[in-house]
Structure formats: structure tokens, C-alpha cells
Amino acid sequence: MTEGITELDAIRESFEFFDAWEDKYRFVIDLGKDLPSLPDHQRVEDNLVRGCQSQVWLVVGDGPDGSLQLSIDSDAHIVRGLIAIVLAAFDGRTPEDILGFDIEALFAELDLLSHLSQTRGNGLRAMVARIRSVAEARLASSDRG
């Protein structure tokens, strides 16, 4: 978990140094290149996140202590980079942490959305909404249990 924070902090720090859009995009694309891919059997219709222009697949597993293990993949480089940022914020966190995290504020801080067209920004939001709804469902079922 602390590792996750470090990762996000590292991303935040790097972004502070970017003036030119080129640098920011190169960095985002490189983040995407380091992101592990989902195996083909998980890159399937059932795992597709609706509302994204590129294909985005999301698989949720259970980590230790009620945390969620997120695997997300896409067929587009820039989207994979954005996924890496989303994962740095959410992966390995508990549903409570996920729901309590203000990702819009993070996007604003990194000035990410202004660089994306409306439709692509919506895709990023669709991905976040899907993660949040999984977190909500887990929370609801653990309340009941």
C-alpha cells in the first residue's frame, strides 16, 4: 500500500516538471508501456468498460485485507498511460479508500482532462465510475455479510 502512494507521488512529481505537452504525453505513453497486459482470455467482451472510445478491459480480483486487485488494459497507448495513473491511485486499496479518494482532484492537479477531448475524457470517467461501482458493491455485500 505504501508502495502505491510512492508510485502516485512519483507520478505527481514528474508532472510538475512538464511544461510542454510533448513531455507530458511521452511520459504518459511510457507509463502505458510499462503496464502489464491482460491475457487474451481476459480481453473479452464481458470485461469491456462501456463508454470508452478505445477498448478498455477491467478485471477485479481480491487482494489481502479486503483490498481490491485491479487489472486494466487497453488497446491504445495513451489510454494505457492513463490507466497506469488510475491504478496508482486505486489498485490494492480497500473499497473505502477507493470511494474516499478524490480522483477528479488528481486529474485536475495533473491537468489531465484539459488535454483530452471531451469524448476521451468521458472514457476516463467511465473507467473510474466502473471501479467505484465495484467498490460500492463490495462495500454493500460486506455490510450485509
Partner: peptide, 21 residues
């Protein structure tokens, strides 16, 4: 090696309006 959307976004940043999808 690139998704059409990657190219579209990178062109857009250069002021070039193309469509992707």
C-alpha cells in the same frame, strides 16, 4: 504500433483536426 485514437489525440495537440474511430 499505435491505436487510431493515439494518433488522433497527438494530431489534435498539434492543432490538426482529424477523426478517429
Amino acid at each position: 504500433g499505435a491505436h487510431p485514437n493515439d494518433i488522433g489525440t497527438l494530431m489534435d495537440r498539434q492543432g490538426i483536426a482529424v477523426r478517429t474511430g
